[in-house]
Write a protein that binds this DNA or RNA. Structure first.
Lengths: 321, 321
DNA sequence: CTCATTATGCTCTCCGTGAGTATTACGCGA
DNA sequence: TCGCGTAATACTCACGGAGAGCATAATGAG
């Protein structure tokens, strides 16, 4: 049975690296592809909104979705992806304004090491938290946006049509952001973004008008939703799979390891406990070599200990707070 | 840019319920749809292999993938789905033997209550562990298959072309199944199935020949892979989201709650600790009512306590062993 | 009335986690 | 060369959750 309405499949990638203490994501300025849409091309006052790199699936050529993804990332950005994980398939009808085809986007999370962050052609590495500023709870950088968000969300609760919906919104707001005594879950990045979207507090939610106060740098189409999905998944996975090491060079100091974990978790971790945890879990082995010139006592260089995969069911790193 | 090669999108569902102490999945005998493939129709000696229910996405009609799924499940099986969660998108080229189109399948996990298990039209509720017998570690039911699997996998390790690949296979086998001192992770259902597939120990891996000893009831196409994905995800989610209650009626005894958790985890849990954990986490509240006629002291009926969503970041149930 | 069966209460021991204090080893500038 | 800033590393301590066991209460069946 031939469909009258064709389906086009896009492969999107949130390609993440950590440089210094900031998590970065690879973005492109222009949507050059067949998948480019009016929305993806949308401009703010000045520049077009950045987009996650994406390319179309070649239904006849690409043997697997993942190999299709790796292929065009290699060709376009000259980047060889290491760790790749499928995130989610986005298929809402109104998410792309193409009248002539249904667009499905399969979003992936990819991790690359800091060393690969340099020449990426026209692509740019941007701070993940410039798109999701409320997610970085390290230096109180999220406090100002969170105060403002709270005020706006209070209003969102207040304008609910009836009491039942009001209390439902209240619950949702509190649980998402951990307000009024609720426990804040750092992994619920997507839920928070979607709440802001529904409350009209991100620019993507009202593409025509410019909102009075929108939070975070917008992205093309629903790419910021994908980025939120990626960050949430990454934070969760950090805890039970040794994915941090995909972002680190072969040898590293414990401080560096902690910095990368903190950058992704968006929170400061207790130093001594972090080290004890990492050591006790057998995640790393010392190399005997030391790093110098950091302005303090030289740190030992460590290396990921693969044998931990045998010993632990869930070898992760972000448990220590 | 119009693709020369059309893409067809299928929506698959692993619809899971727990009756008594067995987890069940809804299966259909025949692939009646446009998506039906030679492989899906494949027969063993007698009947065709059961399949997960699936239906095509209507690219022009269905506003979202999930609503498309709910729609055809309602129409075909007369079943109104409650909890639905996207699992994974399968898109390998060779997974469906259609020469005229590329088939993408978006697989979903859906949970329904025991009460809904009855009239499902031509569909049948089958024991999940009949497809994945090595995953049920409750009454030693998995012991016999696991012994046999172990012997076959030892051979798989031995026939590796060189020493490096041999030790890589050895590592993988040990980690997957928790052998030779490795820690067995109950959530890695998919990894175990895929290992068996690669080792040629499931019928789907060699559709022509009939294997000397294949493990578990096969399913059409790659549906058993989807089921493994579903079970793994469900086991993981049990631990940090209150999904068990999607499978239970409004009120239930603690024994019933534990049985459902055990059925999905495929393991026995310590009774007193389970109850203490559930109580301490504030997951349930007593109703004051009691159940009788069970042949012992009557148990109190409990109800899910929604307020736990505020209080706990990760309210789950399967921590107690 | 007794026994099998199930629910439920209580205890006790580890160990992981959160948090703090103290000590060691560098580079650098006065 | 001495002192100070910076960072790494070593210990200690309290607390709560998880694992395991024993004891007791409330039913129905015979």
């Amino acid at each position: 049975m031939q469909r009258p309405f064709p389906v086009v499949v896009g492969l999107n990638a949130a390609i993440v690296a950590v440089t210094g203490e900031t998590p970065r994501v690879l973005t492109v300025e222009r949507a050059e592809h067949a998948l480019a849409t009016a929305r993806a091309m949308r401009r703010g006052p000045g520049r077009p909104w950045p987009a996650l790199p994406f390319g179309p699936l070649d239904p006849a050529g690409d043997p697997t979705l993942e190999r299709g993804l790796r292929g065009w990332v290699r060709r376009q950005a000259g980047l060889e992806l290491g760790y790749v994980e499928q995130l989610y398939t986005f298929g809402d009808r109104d998410r792309e304004s193409r009248g002539d085809a249904r667009v499905l986007s399969v979003a992936y999370l990819a991790l690359v090491r800091e060393s690969a962050v340099s020449g990426a052609g026209e692509a740019q590495w941007r701070d993940v938290y410039s798109f999701l500023p409320w997610e970085d709870g390290r230096e109180g950088g999220a406090e100002a946006p969170l105060r403002a968000i709270r005020a706006r969300l209070e209003a969102f609760v207040a304008v609910a049509p009836d009491a039942a919906q009001r209390s439902a919104r209240r619950e949702r707001v509190d649980i998402c952001f951990g307000w009024r005594g609720a426990a804040r879950d750092p992994d619920r990045v997507l839920e928070r973004y979607e709440l802001l979207y529904e409350a009209g507090l991100v620019a993507e939610a009202h593409p025509g008008r410019s909102g009075p106060e929108d939070f975070g740098q917008p992205m093309a189409a629903d790419h910021r939703r994908m980025l939120a999905t990626a960050l949430g998944r990454l934070r969760g996975k950090l805890r039970y799979r040794p994915v941090v090491f995909e972002l680190l060079p072969d040898t590293f100091t414990l401080l560096r390891l902690q910095q990368v974990a903190e950058a992704l978790a968006g929170a400061r971790l207790h130093k001594q406990n972090f080290r004890r945890l990492v050591a006790a879990a057998g995640l790393v082995v010392g190399t005997g070599q030391r790093e110098s010139g950091t302005g303090g006592r030289p740190a030992e260089l460590f290396r990921f200990r693969r044998a931990v995969l045998r010993e632990r069911r869930a070898p992760g790193v972000a448990a220590a707070r």
